[in-house]
Amino acid sequence: MAIPKRKVNPKGETVISVSGLTPKAARYSRIFDFLVVAAVVPLFAGAFHLHVMLTVGDWDMYVDWKDRQYWPLVAPISMIMFPAALQAIFWVNFRLPIGATVGATVLLITTWLGRYANWWIWTGFPFTEGVPSQVIAGALLMDMALIVLRNSLFTSIFAGFAFGFVFWPSNYSALAPFYLPVEHQGMVASLADMIGYTFPRSNMPEYLRIIERGTLRTFGSSVSWVSAAFAGFICIFMHQLWWQLGRFASQTTFLKNGDVVKSFMGMKSRRAS
């Protein structure tokens, strides 16, 4: 396994040379890298996808839940959590500005995998009904802010806000065609409404949708931007909270083990305690 020898400064120092690893040690360290990546990808595909499904799943799952009031608000608030924690884990311990992108990327890939293997193959829902949201745009901005600002607090303030704020425009580009108007039974419907209506979910009556209702809106047509700004505001705090949680999760605390258990497990020496 080849280790790229990047000369990163004029003295010819590389990360490996400064780390003091011998070539063979560096090879095993690279194997370790592969193992860690092999753990990170499925672990966060599983944990993050579960988190998203059970906190804002309905908005993310169905095209006819993607409204202007709640979806751009609740989805980024929930979806910033794991990326923020991963950012802390990768940055604080390894100075890798990729944590948020890792989270957002595995989420989008695994979501589409589910859409294909479960939604389409098993229950037969058309892909249009389950187009998910993506947070890669916001996550990339968070990682970029971190590499420039190198400070979690400023990252929270600027990039946490950006994460929430760009959720609406960055997803609208992908979903705009689904908001075309159609006339159905003498009433207006968006294509998204029609998709949800045409391909029925037996256990999802129309009223179950938690979406914008009624007509009176103070800001008129800018409902979505108000939601985006509010989402950005909340995301500032969410980012910092989850950054701290990521740091907490990186701790190496060992609690004291009882002598009986230790000797039971094979620890003979008293010195160990």
Binding site: A45, M61, L113, N118, R201
Partner: peptide, 30 residues
């Protein structure tokens, strides 16, 4: 580390793949 990789692998199938299937199943059927 390998134990933990396999554990993570199982978390993926549980938390993502089959949980997603569970979601879509229960919205489809009673």
């Amino acid at each position: 580390t390998m134990w933990l990789v396999v554990y993570s692998f199982c978390i993926f199938w549980t938390g993502s793949f089959f949980a997603d299937g569970d979601g879509v199943w229960h919205q489809t059927t009673l």
